[in-house]
Amino acid sequence: MPQFTTSDGLRLTYEDTGSGKPLLCLAGLTRNSREFSFFTPYANGLRVFTMDYRGRGDSDFDPDYRNYSVPREAQDVIELLDHLKLDRVSILGTSRGGLIAMTLAAIRPERLSAVILNDVGPVIEPSAIGRIMDYVGKAPAATTLEQAAFALKQAMEPQFPGVSIETWRKQAAFQYEETGTGLRLRYDPALRTALQEQIAAGPPADLWPLFEALNLLPTGVIRGANSDLLSAETLAEMHQHHARLISAEVPDRGHVPFLDEPQSITVIRKVLDLI
């Protein structure tokens, strides 16, 4: 994978494929560029960029875990755009990636053409935060990718009914690396410490002003119908704050849709057609 060096000296990796309108895909909290492999077969006419945040995927771990934060990761995005000599880009942001996109809309709106949020909004349900803290930074009990795939299928079946074991095999390989002593996380376990300290610092910030910064941009929201992070009530309120918001719910999906679903592709295309 190609790479660039951030202003504080970390080597971050990214991918650049296809041609057409530029679309930057930003992954979830513990995930990496690989998760967009479900979407890329449907990306005709798009120049798709993905990046591994600091401490994720093939990018360098940060020796200071406190830099695993949305503001620093938003700055990394701007530095990637500068490296690529891209004045503006649309963002497809999954979960954490959506928070980064909203932050950029507030602080650097001139660099954005459009934003699509994948199962995230200005209200993060507390139950989802608890679920995330149950696993983040912890090695899985499974010791092989095959075991991890079946564990994922069993754990996620209530929110993702009917998803094939082959899909979960791919997801397991995106999340873990098989070694001689078990599975290794494809991210820095110190991310857990960063989150713990951020949670302990006080109540979460009001994210509605960040979402309202999207009002001048074509904006879409994809919600998994079974999501525990983005509620149906929050999505309805988002429509009240953004009159031109394009959205869809994806049946039989929780947090987060894979982005290969017809409803997801439709939202992405409708938003990008507006630029």
Rank of each mutant, 00 (worst) to 15 (best):
D52C: 02
G55K: 00
G55V: 09
G55M: 07
R56D: 11
R56F: 13
S59Y: 01
S59M: 01
D60H: 03
F61N: 13
D62H: 14
D64F: 05
D64L: 12
Y65M: 08
Y65N: 04
N67T: 14
Y68A: 08
Y68D: 06
S69C: 11
S69E: 06
V70F: 12
V70S: 12
P71T: 01
P71Q: 02
R72F: 11
R72W: 06
R72D: 14
R72V: 15
A74P: 02
A74Q: 07
Q75R: 14
Q75K: 11
Q75P: 05
Q75H: 13
Q75L: 15
V77E: 01
I78A: 09
I78N: 09
E79T: 05
L80W: 09
L80A: 00
D82M: 04
D82E: 15
D82F: 01
D82R: 06
L84I: 10
L84M: 13
L84C: 12
K85G: 04
D87E: 10
R88C: 14
R88Y: 04
R88F: 09
V89G: 08
I91S: 07
G93A: 08
G93K: 00
G93N: 00
G93S: 06
G93F: 08
G93L: 01
S95A: 02
S95E: 02
S95W: 03
R96S: 07
G98P: 13
G98V: 00
L99D: 02
L99M: 14
L99R: 01
I100T: 08
I100L: 14
I100P: 04
A101K: 08
M102P: 03
T103Q: 09
T103F: 12
T103C: 08
L104V: 11
A106S: 15
P109F: 10
E110G: 06
R111L: 10
L112D: 07
L112E: 05
S113I: 05
S113V: 11
S113Y: 01
S113E: 15
A114T: 00
V115S: 01
V115E: 02
I116M: 10
I116E: 13
L117I: 13
N118I: 03
D119E: 05
G121C: 10
P122M: 03
P122H: 13
P122T: 03
P122Y: 07
V123K: 06
E125Y: 10
S127I: 15
S127M: 14
A128Q: 01
A128P: 04
I129N: 00
I129F: 06
G130M: 11
R131W: 03
R131K: 08
R131G: 15
R131F: 07
I132K: 00
I132C: 00
M133G: 04
M133K: 10
Y135G: 15
Y135S: 15
Y135V: 15
Y135E: 05
V136D: 08
G137T: 03
A139E: 14
P140N: 11
P140L: 09
A142L: 04
T143W: 01
T143L: 09
T144L: 11
T144Q: 02
L145M: 07
L145H: 06
E146L: 03
Q147H: 01
Q147S: 03
A148G: 05
A148H: 05
A148K: 04
A149M: 10
A149H: 02
K153S: 14
K153F: 08
K153Q: 15
E157H: 03
E157A: 12
E157M: 09
P158D: 12
P158V: 06
Q159K: 06
P161K: 01
